[in-house]
C-alpha cells in the first residue's frame, strides 16, 4: 500500500489482499446486521419513555438489550452481556436475542422468561464454554409496578425523581444463563412513581479506564445520573456517554458499553386499551 497525497492505493491481486478485503466486507456486514437488530425501533410506552444504546468496544460486540411490548400493556425489558468480546460474543448475542424474543412471547413474567431462556440455550452455551448475564424486567404503566428477575447481571439503579436519591434495586438472586440447567429465577417488585428513572447497564460503563488505569466506577455513574435526572432519556444517555468520554479522555474503549433507560412520567396512566405487540 502507498499514499500519493490524494488516495490510499492497495496492492491488487494477491490472494492475501483479496482474503483480507473479503473478511473486512463480511465484518462490516455483520456489524450492520448487529447494529440494525440492536438499535431497532424503540417502542412507545404509555406513561413513560424507554431508550437503549450500545457501543461495542470492537467493530461488533456481545452486549444486548431489547424491548418487548406485551398484550396486557406491560413492556418487557432485557439487558445482557455475553462472555467475551468481538465476533464470537456477537454470534452468541444473536442466539440470546432469539431466545429472548421467543421466551418473552410465551412466558408470564421476567423470571419465567429467564428460566425459558436458560432452558433454550444452556446446552449450546456449555458446549461453547460460554455464558451470558441477563437482567429482565416488566414494567406495568397501569399500576406503576416494576417486576424483575436477575441472571447474574448488575442490578440497575433507580433514581427517585422527587427525592433526589439513587439506589440499587433490592437484590434478587439468580445465576448467569448457561451456568447450570433447570434454574428458577425469582422475582422482586418495586413501585415506580412519577419522574422515577431506572438505569440498566453493562460493566463496560463502570469499568471504563482512564490513562492512570483508574475505573469510572459506580460512584461517577451515580453522580452523573443525579445531575441529569430531570432530562429526558436520550439526554441522560448522552450525558453518561459524555462523562465516560471525558473521564477516559482518549483511552481506547476496552469493553462494550450498553445502557437502557426507563423513565416514568405518570406511573398510573389512564390506559383503556392496548394493542400488542407495538413496535
Amino acid at each position: 500500500m502507498y499514499f500519493d497525497n490524494f488516495t490510499f492505493h492497495f496492492d491488487q491481486g494477491t490472494p492475501e489482499n483479496e482474503l483480507e478485503k473479503s473478511l473486512q466486507r463480511e465484518i462490516n456486514l455483520a456489524r450492520n446486521i448487529q447494529t440494525s437488530l440492536l438499535n431497532g425501533k424503540t417502542p412507545k410506552v404509555e406513561g413513560g419513555q424507554v431508550s437503549g444504546n450500545s457501543l461495542p468496544a470492537r467493530l461488533i460486540g456481545g452486549d444486548y438489550y431489547d424491548f418487548y411490548p406485551l398484550v396486557n400493556g406491560k413492556i418487557r425489558i432485557v439487558i445482557g452481556d455475553v462472555m467475551g468480546k468481538g465476533i464470537p460474543a456477537a454470534m452468541l448475542m444473536i442466539l440470546t436475542r432469539g431466545a429472548f424474543r421467543s421466551a418473552a412471547e410465551s412466558t408470564q413474567g421476567p423470571g419465567e422468561t429467564l428460566t425459558a431462556m436458560n432452558q433454550a440455550i444452556y446446552e449450546d452455551l456449555r458446549t461453547l464454554k460460554s455464558f451470558v448475564t441477563l437482567f429482565c424486567a416488566d414494567w406495568d404503566p397501569k399500576s406503576g409496578t416494576f417486576t424483575y428477575a436477575n441472571a447474574g447481571h448488575h442490578l440497575p439503579l433507580c433514581i427517585r425523581g422527587k427525592s433526589n436519591t439513587i439506589e440499587e434495586l433490592p437484590k434478587v438472586k439468580g445465576i448467569m444463563v448457561g451456568g447450570l440447567p433447570n434454574q428458577i429465577y425469582h422475582e422482586e417488585s418495586i413501585q415506580l412513581e412519577d419522574l422515577d428513572m431506572v438505569f440498566f447497564y453493562t460493566d463496560g460503563i463502570i469499568e471504563a479506564q482512564n490513562k492512570e488505569g483508574e475505573l469510572y466506577q459506580i460512584t461517577r455513574l451515580k453522580e452523573t445520573l443525579l445531575q441529569c435526572k430531570e432530562k429526558d432519556v436520550k439526554e441522560v444517555e448522552k450525558a453518561v456517554i459524555d462523562t465516560i468520554n471525558h473521564f477516559t479522555s482518549g483511552v481506547p474503549q476496552k469493553d462494550d458499553i450498553t445502557m437502557v433507560l426507563l423513565k416514568v412520567f405518570d406511573s398510573k396512566a389512564d390506559i383503556t386499551s392496548f394493542n400488542s405487540p407495538i413496535f
Partner: peptide, 17 residues
C-alpha cells in the same frame, strides 16, 4: 457473587449435570 460462581461451585458436585 453477582454472576453466581459460588452457587455453581456448590451445586455442581451435588447434581447430575
Amino acid at each position: 457473587e453477582t454472576v453466581g460462581l459460588y452457587h455453581i461451585l456448590e451445586e455442581i458436585h451435588k447434581e447430575d449435570i
